[in-house]
Simulated scan of single mutants.
Amino acid sequence: MRYPQGGGLTAERQQFREELRLKAAERFAQGEASSVIAKALRVNVRSVQRWRQKWDEDGRRALRSQGPASLPRLSQEQFAQLEAELAKGPAEHGWEDQRWTLARIITVIGRRPVEPGSPSRTKPDSPRRRRTRRPGHSAAGPRWCGSAAAPVDGSPSPR
């Protein structure tokens, strides 16, 4: 399954992709064209070209798997807690119908207590939030200082 809990490929799929890259490396050494290798391995030619470039720079070692792209955001314990909360159903969490939506799941996650030692959630006045807003804009939208149609000298605008 792609994007299990934390994202990226499963360990089995990573292993499979690494084996493909190493098979391609054997063919690079034999001097085969990228298009021939791509067709034989049933992958995109551009992927083979990227692999060949890495192989040229650093050999077979460059084609080895680097591990998962990111670590899961939830520990196994936290994931089990979330599953237990979701198993209770939306009605238990205050919604009238029995549908889980992404927004509702995010709300349930947001309601869970912050554990000591874990990173805190982003607060509205945190530096991270302040950086995302442009000067002259609030969370509600831009502040307008006047009408763009009104001339500066105060005379009525020609229409």
Rank of each mutant, 00 (worst) to 15 (best):
S70L: 12
Q76I: 04
E96N: 03
D97A: 11
A91R: 10
G94R: 07
H93Y: 10
E77K: 01
D97N: 12
P68F: 01
A91C: 15
L74W: 10
E77R: 04
W95P: 12
L82Y: 13
G89E: 03
L82P: 08
P72L: 00
D97W: 02
W95E: 15
P72W: 06
S70G: 13
Q81V: 12
E85L: 09
P68L: 09
E92Q: 09
E92L: 02
L86V: 07
A80Y: 03
H93M: 10
A84C: 08
Q78G: 06
P72D: 05
A69Y: 02
K88I: 08
L86S: 11
P68V: 04
K88H: 03
H93P: 08
R73E: 13
L82I: 15
E85Y: 02
E77N: 09
Q98T: 11
H93K: 08
Q76L: 08
R99M: 15
A69E: 04
D97C: 06
L71Y: 07
W100G: 00
W95V: 13
Q98A: 14
L82Q: 13
L86C: 13
G89D: 03
L82W: 07
G89S: 06
S70Y: 06
L71R: 09
A87Y: 05
R73L: 15
F79V: 10
Q78V: 05
T101N: 13
D97Y: 10
R73K: 13
G67T: 05
Q76H: 08
E85N: 03
Q66M: 06
F79M: 13
W100L: 06
E92M: 11
P72Y: 00
G67H: 07
L86T: 07
P90Q: 02
H93I: 05
A91Y: 03
A91L: 12
W100A: 02
P68D: 00
S70E: 13
Q76S: 02
R99T: 09
Q66C: 11
P68G: 10
D97M: 04
D97R: 01
S65R: 05
A91Q: 06
E77D: 14
T101D: 13
H93N: 10
P90L: 11
L74S: 12
R73S: 14
A80R: 08
T101M: 14
E96L: 11
W95T: 10
L71I: 05
L74F: 14
E96S: 01
Q81W: 00
W95G: 13
E83H: 06
W100N: 08
Q78M: 14
H93W: 02
S75V: 09
G94P: 01
D97K: 07
L86W: 01
W100E: 05
Q78I: 06
R99V: 15
P68A: 14
L71E: 08
F79S: 13
T101W: 09
Q66P: 01
E92W: 05
S75F: 05
Q98P: 02
L82A: 15
R99P: 12
S75T: 14
Q66R: 10
Q76T: 01
P72S: 07
Q98R: 11
R73C: 14
Q98C: 12
E85F: 07
R99A: 14
S75Y: 00
D97L: 01
Q76F: 01
L82N: 11
F79Q: 15
L82T: 08
Q66W: 00
S65V: 10
A91G: 02
A87F: 01
D97V: 00
Q98K: 09
T101S: 15
A87S: 07
A91N: 00
Q78F: 01
